[in-house]
């Protein structure tokens, strides 16, 4: 660092007038986390910069592309449109936690099998949204959503590589396999291996 660099830095430090940080205590991927965050910090920067959870991506930072999709209190949200400071007491799940839990191991295997990820930048957000489809289908308890319904639910998540068809295939494959597995469970037949991992 040059002498003038040091001058500038000390000058700027004196002028530090940032608003006070907020103390937040929340659960991230099942772990208790306490941090002080600036109010200007959005959830994605909080996850990426403060917690090192780089699986969630900032694709536009204005709430359109869906690459930053994570779960807050059980529902998917745009991480770039959530104030980290507002999350005291919240339960946050990211792609890292979702993967570790095994909840969507079958979905992820189908993404690989169908080549539903190319560059992969949208993929964590896409998986979070697809997991939301699976969760809602399970809540509804009934039939499998149609391809059009899958497309509609995914349509807030941009993918620039795949053309979406393989993603729809992977989600549909997973829904069908889980549906079959649920039927098989009722008949006391061993569950399909793919959905075994999701239990």
């Amino acid at each position: 660092m040059t002498a003038s660099d040091r001058e500038h830095r000390s000058a700027s430090e004196e002028r530090s007038v940032n608003p006070p940080q907020q103390r937040i205590s929340l659960t991230v991927n099942g772990e208790r986390v306490t941090r002080h965050v600036e109010p200007r910090r959005h959830l994605i920067d909080f996850l990426r910069l403060d917690l090192g959870l780089t699986g969630s991506h900032a694709g536009c930072e204005h709430g359109v592309c869906g690459a930053c999709t994570v779960r807050v209190d059980g529902e998917i949200v745009r991480g770039c449109l959530v104030l980290a400071a507002s999350l005291d007491g919240a339960d946050v799940v990211t792609i890292e936690g979702l993967s570790d839990s095994g909840e969507v191991a079958d979905l992820q295997a189908n993404f690989v099998a169908r080549n539903a990820a190319q560059c992969g930048f949208c993929t964590p957000g896409m998986i979070m949204t697809a997991a939301d489809i699976l969760a809602h289908a399970e809540e509804a308890g009934g039939g499998t959503p149609s391809r059009a319904e899958i497309r509609e639910h995914l349509s807030g998540n941009y993918c620039r590589c795949t053309g979406y068809q393989a993603i729809v295939d992977a989600v549909e494959d997973t829904l069908k396999a889980r549906h079959l597995a649920a039927d098989s469970d009722l008949r006391a037949v061993p569950a399909l291996q793919s959905s075994e991992a999701s239990r």
């Binding site: 998917i76 949204t129 349509s155 807030g156």
Partner: peptide, 12 residues
């Protein structure tokens, strides 16, 4: 409601 943006937006 289904015409408003996308699921993640509608959740917030």
């Amino acid at each position: 409601v289904p015409l408003i943006a996308h699921p993640a937006i509608r959740n917030r």
